[in-house]
């Protein structure tokens, strides 16, 4: 069996230290080592976008990265957004616009959209579609997701100073 490596990864603000095999994917690390199962795995080849997390603030496919690459870095997952009692405005907009059906792709879509909306707080429909074109959804036909983003953009406070 391969050697184990010590990694220290900050996920949603909490520092986790674990010994991992070098081949352990970041997605498996988050889900099975840390129990953060909100990040889903749909293809393991970087196409579907379900496993998208923020890596030092940038959206990445956690199925295309190894856990050891995250050593010393910051990762944000859907669990770090709102809670069931107090949803993040983007989550709230998804709820209101019925942007969720089976919900499997949803965490990845949310994580893709967070930095997008920070950069572009008033996107057009076309820009939204472009932004989520790397996230496959088989249930919604995307329309209610687009509506949710438009709604969120209306409701979210300007993020200029974060």
């Amino acid at each position: 069996m391969s050697d184990l490596y010590e990694v220290s990864v900050t996920v949603n603000g909490t520092v986790y230290q674990r010994s991992v095999e070098p081949r352990l994917l970041l997605s498996d690390f988050l889900r099975h080592e840390l129990g953060l199962t909100g990040t889903h795995v749909g293809c393991e080849h970087g196409v579907c976008g379900a496993c998208t997390v923020l890596f030092d603030g940038e959206p990445v496919r956690s199925c295309l990265m190894f856990a050891v690459q995250a050593n010393g870095h910051q990762v944000s997952t859907v669990e770090g957004l709102g809670t069931m009692e107090e949803l993040h405005p983007l989550q709230q907009a998804f709820w209101e616009a019925h942007a969720v059906q089976c919900g499997f792709c949803t965490p990845g879509v949310l994580m893709t959209l967070l930095p997008f909306l920070e950069e572009n707080p008033t996107p057009s429909e076309e820009e939204i579609r472009e932004a989520i074109s790397g996230n496959l959804c088989r249930c919604t036909g995307y329309q209610h997701i687009v509506d949710a983003v438009l709604l969120a953009a209306e409701k979210m406070p300007s993020q200029g100073d974060c």
Binding site: R31, H32, G35, L36, T37, G38, T39, H40, V41, T77, V78, E79, L81, G82, T83, M84, L87, Q91, F94, W95, E96, H98, V100, G103, F104, T106, P107, L110
Partner: peptide, 21 residues
Amino acid sequence: IKRNEDPRLLTGRALFVDDVE
């Protein structure tokens, strides 16, 4: 009507089969 199940799905708290450990 907004869906009752959505808060769980939106926050990553819904149980899917691969989440069973």
